[in-house]
């Protein structure tokens, strides 16, 4: 059983509360530049997309790391950094295809989502459902049912409720 952050950007309102709680949880400060999640925004199109680490199985950031500081933590299904080994070369920042690793300008270290050690604050505060912390294998179930429902409708076979 691995739980992951599942993002539905269509539900995101762009409020950036996730950024705030992430940086407060980790650094005790509000500072989007030091958050492990960020909202990419296209203001004139009304699009806001939460960007956060996908905890890749075969992670480009891990392969790119020259000191083996970045590694997978299978227990929580996440990718972490061993700061004792990390030399701050920022190779992973560039290697991540999602831009999900931030360079913290004040602490001068790489930061990315650590799933709050299993209690993700972003998902807890985001009431829209844009970020959910759920079992990966069920992530598609809602959409599956929705699509299946549409299929059912298009076949026009109304199902009668059971008689009482």
């Amino acid at each position: 059983m691995t739980k992951q952050l599942v993002i539905d950007y269509e539900k995101c309102t762009g409020c950036r509360l996730c950024e705030m709680v992430c940086s407060v949880k980790h650094e005790g400060v509000v500072n989007p530049a030091r958050s492990r999640i960020n909202i990419a925004k296209w203001e004139t199109k009304g699009l806001t997309v939460p960007v956060v680490c996908r905890q890749c199985e075969d992670a480009p950031c891990v392969s790119a790391c020259p000191t083996n500081a970045r590694m997978r933590d299978e227990e929580l299904g996440r990718v972490i950094v061993n700061y004792d080994r990390c030399i701050g070369c920022k190779t992973c920042v560039v290697a991540c295809p999602f831009g999900a690793i931030n360079w913290d300008p004040l602490a001068r270290k790489v930061i990315s989502c650590d799933l709050c050690d299993g209690e993700p604050q972003c998902a807890r505060f985001c009431e829209t459902g844009a970020i959910r912390f759920i079992e990966v294998s069920t992530a598609n179930k809602d959409r599956q049912r929705e699509a299946a429902g549409q299929l059912l409708e298009s076949m026009q076979k109304p199902v009668q409720p059971a008689a009482r």
Binding site: V24, K25, V29, N31, A33
Partner: peptide
């Protein structure tokens, strides 16, 4: 990119 330090972060959350 300057910090807004929260006085009591755990309680504030």
């Amino acid at each position: 990119t300057m910090d807004i330090k929260i006085a009591h972060p755990a309680e504030a959350l």
